[in-house]
Simulated assay, not measured.
Amino acid sequence: MSSAIINGKEIGQEIRGEVAIRVEALKKQGLTPGLAVILVGENPASKTYVANKQKSCEQIGMYSELIKLPAETTEENLLDQIRTLNEREDIHGILVQLPLPKHINEDEVIATISPEKDVDGFSPVSVGKMMLGQDTYLPCTPYGVMKLLEYSGIEVAGKHAVIVGRSHIVGKPMGQLLLQKDATVTYTHSKTPDLPSFTKQADIIIAAVGRANFITKEHVKEGAVVIDVGINRDENNKLCGDVNFADVDGIASHITPVPGGVGPMTITMLLSNTVQSAENVLARQTT
């Protein structure tokens, strides 16, 4: 029997419908949520992501603005652009598309974004608040994974979740969000010896290691939930995840496909965070 597919496209559309209602409510009170995206250079993947973000904003009635800068832009020029956006009342979320050219310090850039407009959830302030379980903008991909589990009716409390990967963007925050929902969390990564001995214990596997078809049936116990965060190209240049889908299908109880699993959720939660920022502005104005 095949594994149940967790359809990120469908769940993402459902959540976007809810976000669109929130946008409409804000507009009736004279406030249109605005997202500014800064794109430095001509990275083809980044350009595609940015175009998708803009299109998604327009579809639910949000304002979006793209600021394109050449690859040779100085770090100071980029920081000035961010400081200007920090001050603008019509912009509620600021996103700098990563990766940035080598001569620009990503940490410095992220730290310059006002925490109140950090809808990516990457700033030290946002990360600190997330660790403490305080209200903040959650990183979009891990937040999206939590929504996938919630909308699929998958209970997290008391389950053993194994994270494969330790990036600041996915792996580390993913574990924290699962921990806050009472999962027992194990972090693993590329240097973990005998990885299957850890992943075979998992009720929930989050694969975020960035290696095509890395997770196979030897890593997965019968009935585990497998969430594939990876976006890679295989030897035939075909889009694939970190999980060998064909190999794991039928062993996992639930699995996310690539594409159409976690990917659509990342942009969905970015929209939700930006609308939340606009709602916070309105709340401050009315108190």
Rank of each mutant, 00 (worst) to 15 (best):
M1V: 13
M1C: 10
M1R: 13
S2M: 14
A4N: 14
E14T: 13
R22F: 07
A25V: 08
V37K: 06
I38M: 13
V40T: 07
V40A: 04
E42T: 12
P44Y: 04
V50Y: 04
N52T: 07
C57H: 01
I60T: 03
M62E: 09
S64R: 00
P70V: 02
T73P: 05
I82D: 06
R83N: 13
R88F: 14
D90R: 08
I94L: 06
L95R: 08
L98S: 12
H103K: 05
E106P: 05
E106R: 11
E108G: 00
S114D: 15
S114T: 08
E116K: 13
D118F: 09
V119F: 07
V119E: 01
G128K: 00
Y137A: 02
Y137I: 02
P142D: 01
Y143H: 15
V145G: 06
M146K: 12
K147R: 14
L149E: 10
E150K: 11
G153F: 09
V156N: 08
A157E: 12
G158E: 03
I163G: 05
K172S: 10
M174W: 05
L177T: 06
L178Q: 06
Y187I: 10
H189W: 08
P193H: 12
P193R: 10
D194K: 12
D194A: 10
S197P: 04
T199H: 11
Q201S: 03
I204L: 12
I205A: 00
I206P: 08
I206A: 08
R211M: 12
F214V: 07
F214W: 10
I215S: 03
V220A: 04
K221D: 06
V225R: 02
D234H: 03
N236D: 13
N237M: 13
K238R: 15
L239W: 08
L239S: 02
L239A: 01
F245W: 09
F245D: 01
D249L: 06
H254W: 13
H254T: 01
I255Q: 05
T256K: 00
P259Q: 08
G260K: 02
G260I: 08
G260R: 04
G261S: 05
P264W: 09
I267Q: 11
M269A: 01
M269N: 04
S272I: 09
Q276A: 14
Q276F: 11
V281H: 13
L282I: 04
T287Q: 15
